[in-house]
Design a protein around this nucleic acid. Structure first.
Length: 660
RNA sequence: GCGCCCGUAGCUCAGUUGGAUAGAGCGUCUGACUACGAAUCAGAAGGCCGCAGGUUCGAGCCCUGCCGGGCGCACCA
C-alpha cells in the first residue's frame, strides 16, 4: 500500500520560527516602554528542560548590566508586563533572571496542524548557484568526493526548501593535467588507439584509477618523459587531434561513470561547465582584459616573478600570486577567476549547451565551445556557493579578492567558499583495501586520500559493500519480498548510510574513514532514521488494514478544535508536547544550517527527532488503544512527526523504503 | 618562518552571538520481544572540556602564552 499524503498536510511546515517571530514582536512592544531594548537584543531560546517552559528570554542579563541593577528584579517586572501575551499560558521567572514562557499547547498544536500558510522561510536571492562534486574526469570517484557531493547536494535541497531558485553546477576539468596523465598512459605506455578504448570493458573509471597511479609513478621515475607530457597538455588545450580526442573520450566516459555513481546517492546536476569550453570560447582572454584594465593584475618586471602577470594580495602585501606565467599560459586560479565571473554573469558571454544525459525526464546539460541548436542559458547568479575542501581556502580567497578589486563588491560578498575538511583513511581501512603503506607513513594515525598514489576507497566499492550488507539484513527480516524489492531497498539503505555518515560530522572535522563505522546501521546512522520512518508508516498501514477506514478521514483538522489535552496523563502530556515542540523546530534548523553551512545540525536534529519518536512509540500504543478519542489524538501526534520527518529526510536525500 | 584549523567520556564526535545540571553514538555491563517491526527501547558505569594565566555576575565557548597534532603558503591543479 502506498502511503498517500492528504493534500491539506502537504503544505504543513513546522513553524516554531513563525511563532517565535510573532512573540518577539509582541514582547518588544510590551517591554520597550519601560526598558531600553532593541529588537535585536530580544531572543527566544529553548529551555534546557520542559519543566522550565518552552521558550526562554534572557534579556534581563544585558539589561541589568546597562541599568546597573540586578537581573532578577528586572525579570520580575518584565514577566508582569508579559503576563497577558497571546498564545502564552504562563510566564515565570527562574534562575538568576530567566523569563520562561509556557506556550498554550492546544492553540499551538492545532495551529501547526491546520495552518495553511507558508513556512517561516523566504527566498532572498534572484538565483543561487551551487558548484559541487568537481571530480577530475580521469579516475573513479572516492570517499573524499562523496563528502563534497553530499554536502553540496544537501545545501541545494535546503536552499530549495527555503524557496530559492537554485542552479547546480559540476565543473569538469577535461583539459587539465590529470586527464593528460591518463591520456599519456593510454597513448605512450599502452599504445592504445582510440578504437582500442572501446574494447576496454567493465568499469572504465576503475581502469583509469589504476592507470593513473601507474603513470604518476612512471613520470616521477622518468623525468625525460615530462617533455612529451607537456606537449600533450598543450595539444589538448588547443584542441588538436588526436590528443584532444583522447581527452574528450576519457573525460566523457568517466564523467558518465561519475554521474552514475552520484545517481546512486540521489545526487544530480543542472549543468556541467567544462574547462575545454572556457578555453575554446576564450573566457580567459576576456577576464584577462578586465583584470588588466582594472589593474587588479600587473606585469612583473623584476624579482622571481619577472615576466609574469601577478596579483597583489590584500593581507599579505609582500607576496604576489602569479596569474599568468612567463610563457603566457594561465594558471588554475586565473581560469577559476574567469569561471567565477561567468557565474555572476559578469563576463558578458555564455557557453553553448547540449544535452549530456536524460535522467527521469530531466536533462543534464553540458557546455560546448561550438554553437548548438539549444536555446538554454546558465550562470548569472546573484549568489554563488563553491563547495571545495579547506585546502583550497587560499585560492578561493584570491578569487574573491579579484572580484572585489574589479569593483564587484556585492558579488565578492556573495561569493561563498563552502569549505570542509578532507576525508582521510585509517590504517585499518587501508589494509582492508590492500594498500601498502610506505615507511615514512607507517607511524601516522591516518593517511590522506591520494588519487595519484591510488590511495582511496572508491565510492562504488563502498556503495557495493553497503548494498550487500543491507540486502542481507533485509532478506533476514523480510524473506518473502520479491528479489527486486529487496535490491531496491538495499540501494536506498546504502544511500542513506553514506549520506548520513557524510553529514553527521561538522564540516571542520576531519573524517578518518573507517569501514566499521561507515557500514554501521545502528545508532546514529541513516538506516536508523529510515527504520524510524518505516515503523511510523506501518502504523498507518495497519490502521487502514485493521479498520478499513482511511486514516485521512480520522485526521481531519476540524477535530483539533475539540481535542482535550486534559485527557492525557501527566507523563503522556509531557512526552506528546516534547515531540511536537521539537518537531516544530525544523524550519529553524534548516535556516541555521544554511547560514552556518553546518548540515550536521540538520542531521542531528533529525536523529534526535527519531530518538524522541522511538521512545514515544515504545511507551504509547496507538492501534491497540481502546479509547477512540485518545487513539485519534495519538494518530495525529505521530502524523505530525511523520510529516516533519519526511521533510527532514528528503532534505538529506534519504528515501524511505516501504519495508526494510 | 607566516596563515588557517583541531585537542571535550575507552573510541568517534555534538555543544546555538558567553547562560540554567557538559550531551549523543559506538564499545562495556543490566534489563525489555506469543510485536502498532528488537536496525528498537529503558537503565548503569565512564569527564581537573590539552596546560597556565586573564576578561566578568557567569567561560568548553572570548583574550594572551605554552604543549601536542593537522592543513595551506607553486610559473601543479
Amino acid at each position: 500500500m502506498q502511503l498517500v499524503r492528504p493534500k491539506i498536510f502537504v503544505i504543513i511546515k513546522s513553524t516554531m520560527l513563525k511563532t517565535k517571530k510573532e512573540l518577539k514582536e509582541k514582547i518588544v512592544s510590551k517591554l520597550s516602554s519601560e526598558f531600553p531594548l532593541s529588537a535585536e537584543e530580544v531572543e527566544l531560546t529553548s529551555t534546557p528542560d520542559q519543566k522550565f517552559g518552552d521558550l526562554a528570554l534572557s534579556i534581563a542579563f544585558p539589561l541589568a548590566k546597562k541599568l546597573k541593577t540586578n537581573p532578577r528584579a528586572i525579570a520580575s517586572r518584565a514577566a508582569e508586563l508579559l503576563s497577558d501575551l497571546e498564545g502564552v499560558e504562563k510566564v515565570e521567572v527562574a534562575g538568576a533572571g530567566y523569563i520562561n514562557l509556557y506556550l498554550d499547547r492546544k492553540k499551538f498544536f492545532s495551529e501547526k496542524f491546520a495552518n495553511l500558510e507558508k513556512t517561516g522561510l523566504n527566498p532572498e536571492e534572484k538565483k543561487v548557484i551551487v558548484e559541487h562534486t568537481n571530480i577530475n574526469p580521469n579516475k573513479a570517484a572516492h570517499v573524499g568526493h562523496l563528502r563534497n557531493a553530499c554536502l553540496g547536494d544537501t545545501l541545494v535541497r535546503c536552499l530549495r526548501y527555503k524557496g530559492e531558485k537554485v542552479e547546480v553546477q559540476n565543473y569538469i576539468d577535461d583539459t587539465g593535467v590529470q586527464v593528460v596523465d591518463v591520456v599519456y598512459g593510454l597513448m605512450e605506455l599502452e599504445k592504445k588507439s582510440l578504437t582500442d578504448l572501446d574494447k576496454i570493458e567493465g568499469k572504465f573509471d576503475y581502469y583509469c584509477w589504476d592507470l593513473y597511479t601507474r603513470v604518476s609513478r612512471f613520470l616521477a621515475e622518468n623525468q625525460q618523459a615530462q617533455a612529451k607530457r607537456a606537449e600533450i597538455l598543450k595539444r589538448i588545450e588547443h584542441g588538436l587531434s588526436p590528443e584532444a580526442d583522447y581527452a574528450y573520450y576519457v573525460s566523457r566516459r568517466i564523467l558518465r561513470a561519475h554521474l552514475a555513481t552520484m545517481k546512486r546517492l540521489n545526487i544530480t546536476y543542472d549543468v556541467l561547465p567544462c574547462e575545454s569550453s572556457i578555453l575554446g570560447l576564450k573566457f580567459w582572454e576576456k577576464a584577462f582584459q578586465m583584470l588588466r584594465d582594472s589593474q587588479t593584475i600587473h606585469f612583473s618586471q623584476e624579482g622571481e616573478s619577472a615576466g609574469c602577470w601577478v596579483m597583489k594580495l590584500e593581507d599579505e602585501p609582500e607576496r604576489e600570486k602569479i596569474i599568468v606565467r612567463s610563457d603566457g599560459t594561465v594558471t588554475y586560479v586565473g581560469k577559476d577567476i574567469a569561471y567565477q565571473l561567468w557565474k555572476f554573469g559578469l563576463l558578458g558571454q555564455d557557453f553553448y549547451y547540449e544535452p549530456f544525459v536524460e535522467d527521469n525526464g530531466r536533462t543534464i546539460w553540458i557546455s560546448s565551445a561550438r554553437p548548438t541548436p539549444y536555446d538554454v542559458h546558465f550562470g548569472a547568479g546573484s549568489k554563488v556557493y563553491n563547495v571545495i575542501d579547506v585546502r583550497q581556502s587560499y585560492l578561493q580567497k584570491v578569487v574573491v579578492q579579484s572580484l572585489k578589486s574589479l569593483g564587484y563588491k556585492e558579488q565578492a560578498s556573495r561569493s561563498i567558499h563552502f569549505s570542509y575538511e578532507m576525508v582521510a583513511l585509517s590504517p585499518k581501512s587501508l589494509s582492508e583495501i590492500n594498500v601498502e603503506i610506505s615507511e615514512e607513513d607507517k607511524d601516522r594515525t591516518f593517511l590522506e586520500v591520494s588519487g595519484r598514489k591510488g590511495i582511496g576507497v572508491k565510492a562504488d566499492d563502498l556503495l557495493d559493500r553497503l548494498e550487500e550488507k543491507a540486502f542481507e539484513e533485509v532478506a533476514k527480516r523480510n524473506p518473502d519480498l520479491p528479489l527486486s524489492s529487496k535490491q531496491q531497498i538495499a540501494r536506498q539503505i546504502a544511500c542513506a548510510a553514506v549520506r548520513y555518515f557524510m553529514l553527521k560530522y561538522a564540516r571542520n572535522s576531519l573524517i578518518v574513514f573507517d569501514f566499521d563505522e561507515a557500514l554501521n546501521f545502528e545508532g546514529e546512522t541513516g538506516p536508523y532514521l529510515q527504520y524510524t520512518a518505516v515503523r511510523l508508516r506501518s502504523i498507518f498501514r495497519k490502521f487502514q488494514e485493521k479498520t478499513g477506514i482511511s486514516y485521512q478521514e480520522i485526521l481531519r483538522p476540524e477535530l483539533l478544535k475539540n481535542i482535550n489535552l486534559e485527557k492525557l496523563s501527566p507523563e503522556e502530556a509531557r512526552d506528546f508536547w516534547e515531540l511536537i515542540v521539537y518537531a516544530s523546530g525544523l524550519d529553524e534548523e534548516v535556516l541555521r544550517s544554511i547560514i552556518t553551512l553546518e548540515f550536521a545540525n540538520l542531521a542531528k536534529f533529525t536523529f534526535n527527532l527519531c530518538q524522541k519518536f522511538n521512545s514515544y512509540y515504545h511507551n504509547y500504543q496507538v492501534l491497540a488503544e481502546k479509547d477512540e478519542e485518545l487513539r485519534t489524538f495519538r494518530l495525529m501526534t505521530i502524523y505530525f512527526v511523520h510529516e516533519i520527518l519526511c521533510q527532514a529526510l528528503d532534505l538529506m536525500g534519504i528515501q524511505i523504503p516501504e519495508k526494510m
